[in-house]
């Protein structure tokens, strides 16, 4: 829990700093926008975390985000290229596809004994590949469809802005369900036990393969749900949607204290990790600095969006370095205590 606390403090400090540099950071428009993007990435990150906690990895979620959007657009978009079916059919087919992909990949990992990295790396490519084939590499717009309102509306409006956008509400639901599953059910306990020591879990009679399979299915499903929101938010479906999102989801989980070694992580950590990712993402555009140049004119410094990759990468590294150092310190302390006891 110490890890999560440290990260929460870090997020708060960064927010305060951003607010200091640009008061619009706390402005209504920006905050609501931030909450929505936290919601969309967060849903993805929760699914990924489940897999990571078992000691696996799911690299295919970004591609699933893409495929869901493409399926909905192809089946239900009223614009050119769409087949004009009712929206619920498109969404159902998309979620069904996500479910089947999850089952397929989960079976490859658990029954065939293939490495999760390879299975989902393949997924990352062939799933996006299918999406590209479906839309012939083009982009289909959702046009005037009411589907585009999904990401932009919600409950409790102020003017025409919803305080709780549907993506954010979806995230809240995912947090509640995910938290319950991870921390309050036998299933969640099994996830941690398998990630902590797969052999010991097997020797304790746990249904290791079934539990793992479940994690891959949930991960694919959350990717599908997240994909619906992203499609609605972007308002069209193209072959590059969701590109690299699997890595953002993994980064969010890791920053929040989910260990890639497996067996470690909390839902609170995932929330904080996701917030960190999105605050930084948002902060890069919001950050500004006023100064007087040599002639005494007031000037404003902005970071361009081209800084985003660098800063995100640096934050991920700092987070894991911090984690490792605290592990070392704890271990040193423990060894010292042990030495003192045996001496």
């Amino acid at each position: 829990m110490r890890r999560e606390l440290g990260m929460a403090v870090a997020v708060a400090v960064i927010c305060a700093f951003l607010w200091y540099s640009n008061h619009h950071f706390i402005g209504q428009y920006n905050i609501l926008d931030l909450l929505r993007s936290v919601g969309m990435l967060g849903i993805l990150a929760i699914g990924s975390s489940l897999v990571i906690i078992t000691g696996g990895i799911d690299l295919s979620v970004g591609a699933i985000v893409c495929l869901t959007g493409v399926l909905i657009a192809k089946i239900s978009s009223p614009s050119t290229g769409g087949l004009h079916y009712p929206m619920w059919i498109g969404i159902s087919v998309a979620l069904l596809a996500a479910l089947l992909i999850g089952i397929f990949q989960g079976l490859l990992v658990t029954r065939m004994g293939l490495q999760p990295f390879i299975v989902t790396l393949g997924g990352l490519m062939w799933i996006r590949g299918i999406a590209e084939v479906i839309i012939n590499g083009r982009t289909i717009s959702f046009g005037s469809s009411s589907f585009t309102n999904l990401a932009n509306s919600g409950l409790l409006n102020i003017g025409h802005e919803a305080i709780f956008s549907y993506p954010f509400l979806g995230f809240v639901a995912a947090v509640i369900l995910g938290g319950y599953l991870l921390h309050m059910t036998v299933y969640g306990r099994y996830l941690f036990a398998i990630g902590g020591n797969r052999d010991a879990a097997y020797y304790s009679g746990l249904p290791v393969k079934r539990v793992e399979l479940g994690a891959y299915v949930i991960s694919a499903l959350t990717a599908g749900i997240s994909g619906i929101f992203y499609a609605s938010f972007i308002q069209d479906a193209g072959p590059t949607v969701g590109h690299g999102y699997e890595l953002y989801a993994i980064a969010a989980a890791v920053i929040g204290g989910v260990s890639l070694r497996g067996g470690e992580g909390t839902i609170v950590g995932v929330i904080i990790g996701t917030s960190m990712m999105e605050v930084i993402n948002n902060g890069i555009t919001m950050f500004q600095w006023h100064y007087h140049n040599s002639k005494g004119h007031l000037r404003t410094f902005h970071l361009g969006t081209h800084w985003q990759d660098f800063i995100t990468g640096a934050v991920i590294l700092l987070a894991v370095i911090f984690d490792q150092v605290s592990h070392f310190v704890a271990r040193r302390k423990r060894l010292k205590a042990q030495a003192a006891k045996t001496a």
Binding site: F192, G196, N197, A200, G263
Partner: peptide
């Protein structure tokens, strides 16, 4: 250590 216990979990768990 390999087959009997999850070392990163508590005694109760």
């Amino acid at each position: 250590k390999r087959n009997g216990l999850v070392l990163g979990m508590s005694v109760a768990k």
